[in-house]
Design a protein around this nucleic acid. Sequence first.
DNA 1: TCTGCGTTGCAACCGAGTTGCAGATCGCAC
DNA 2: GTGCGATCTGCAACTCGGTTGCAACGCAGA
Lengths: 142, 142
Amino acid sequence: MNDKHCEEILLHHDIRPTAVRILVLQAMERFSDTFSLADLEVATETVDKSTIFRTLTLFVAHHLLHIIEDGSGSTKYCICYNDHHCSLDELHCHFHCEQCGRTFCLEQAHIPAIKYPAGFEVRQINYLIKGKCPDCRTKQRN
Amino acid sequence: MNDKHCEEILLHHDIRPTAVRILVLQAMERFSDTFSLADLEVATETVDKSTIFRTLTLFVAHHLLHIIEDGSGSTKYCICYNDHHCSLDELHCHFHCEQCGRTFCLEQAHIPAIKYPAGFEVRQINYLIKGKCPDCRTKQRN
DNA sequence: TCTGCGTTGCAACCGAGTTGCAGATCGCAC
DNA sequence: GTGCGATCTGCAACTCGGTTGCAACGCAGA
């Protein structure tokens, strides 16, 4: 959470730790689940949209973040806490709540192996579940 | 493919078969896989973008089409040939080729049952595979 | 023929993302 | 500490897919 910690993370991913990048990373870590460019714009307050955009692009390229497409219209991001890059480049499982709009990273253990159709070269798998999150379900009951 | 055939499909889905809608549906059927609003704009030539947009929205609402989010930035659509609406509202499996940009509907048989995390209410599952399609792979070899 | 409502085309708008550019800042050599 | 090239940042403008308001059209029923 503190500057030192964020700086280490950036260095570990071969990213020059500028003041703005540390600020953006701190903002990211305050989100428990996923976040969008717009979320960061609000969270950082001072940092420009285009700077955040370029920072996000950089972080994704350096595998500090991964992109989530939840069909909500705005790209979501999520911090990669695991270092490994498995042979199947990326394997994502997410849950998108259609009520509150939040998107959660789910444990990859839930994804089973599937038989790929012949002839296709698989690079990335996105398993996106949509529905209602536990919070929204309990809220509705009360 | 002909007018009569398209008209029947529309009526079967409780959609009033106007000339424009038949034209749009015919254009849709010429696509072997999925298509976007922009694709239809080109394919129909005469029909306005907003009309196509409203037609797509209508077709989706009447379960004649389904929406595919392939993360390409533009929404893709695909004709629903199966009538059934299973209890798990929708279950989509698609392959998006990162080279040619096309998106294919895959057989749903390939999707295995997964253990959903507790507390979440599942309404829709999107299984999106990204990589290279057979066409692009063979092209590259030559 | 007249009327009303659904449909369509046009134009304008919206919002997320993206880019060009000039000024600020950084890291390094001196 | 100073100077310099490279990188980073903020601003503004732009792109593009999608969406909406509105007026005109056209078809079905009176």
